[in-house]
């Protein structure tokens, strides 16, 4: 499958149970977990040390809530890591999805960033796909965040003008999936997806964009404005 290319992962999660579970899951599917830490400070330090040794990991998987304050240190560490190490992908996991956190993470740049509900790890393959996607500079947004954005968007009339199929494609696109991934998820041909995508861009009045993460940004900006 996609797992041809190994990605190097750093995991930050305070629950030992989940940290070990994630490590096992990623290792099992052929990836490299180079470090596992229990709090945000250790995460920033570890990534800094790895980068200094010329071994910057491909992606960081971080819990939102970690010691010492158990609030949003994961998000803050993620924002900081993205600023300090532009090549690094950051995937944030959370027990609850808050659009606010997504907005902070996506501020200005959707390259190599993800925000998923913790429950998504249950779909092992999809989850690992998301990790790989973020590691390769793509985007992985939780369907719930996308649904919140779609539901709260002030462009309801335009969203309503989309066909149900186009809305589905829009949602998957906003999650950060590629055309072929969307085609697989909806069980249609790549060509059909391309047609839907260009229709969506036409209806939203956006200029079509080739790179997947840039088109996510376009869609999100459109929905948020």
């Amino acid at each position: 499958m996609i797992v041809e290319d190994r990605v190097r992962v750093v995991i930050a999660e305070d629950s030992v149970l989940l940290r070990e579970g994630l490590t096992r899951l990623l290792t099992d599917l052929g990836h490299d977990v180079v470090a596992g830490v229990g709090d945000a400070d250790a995460l920033v330090k570890t990534v800094g040390e790895l980068a200094d040794g010329g071994e910057l990991p491909d992606v960081v998987v971080a819990d939102v809530r970690m010691p010492p304050t158990h609030t949003d240190e994961g998000v803050r560490a993620a924002v900081r890591l993205r600023r300090d190490h532009p090549g690094l992908g950051v995937l944030v996991l959370s027990q609850y999805v808050e659009e606010q956190y997504a907005t902070e993470l996506l501020a200005g740049n959707t390259r190599g960033v993800g925000y998923l509900l913790k429950d998504r790890v249950a779909e092992v393959r999809e989850f690992v796909d998301a990790v790989v996607r973020v590691a390769r500079g793509g985007t992985a947004l939780d369907p719930e965040v996308v649904a919140q954005l779609l539901g709260r968007s002030r462009k309801q009339d335009v969203v309503a003008a989309l066909t149900p199929r186009e809305r589905e494609v829009l949602g998957l696109m906003a999650e950060g999936r590629t055309n072929s991934a969307i085609a697989r998820a909806l069980v249609v041909s790549d060509g059909a997806v391309e047609k839907h995508v260009s229709n969506i861009f036409l209806k939203l009045g956006l200029s079509p964009s080739d790179a997947d993460h840039r088109r996510v940004l376009a869609v999100l900006t459109y929905l948020r404005s």
Partner: peptide
């Protein structure tokens, strides 16, 4: 809330992860 988050919720996530892996 903390007890739920650190206890049962984390355990259920780990459980879902384990079952997902088993399914694979």
């Amino acid at each position: 809330e903390r007890d739920l988050h650190d206890g049962a919720q984390a355990r259920l996530v780990a459980l879902a992860m384990g079952l997902g892996l088993a399914k694979e």
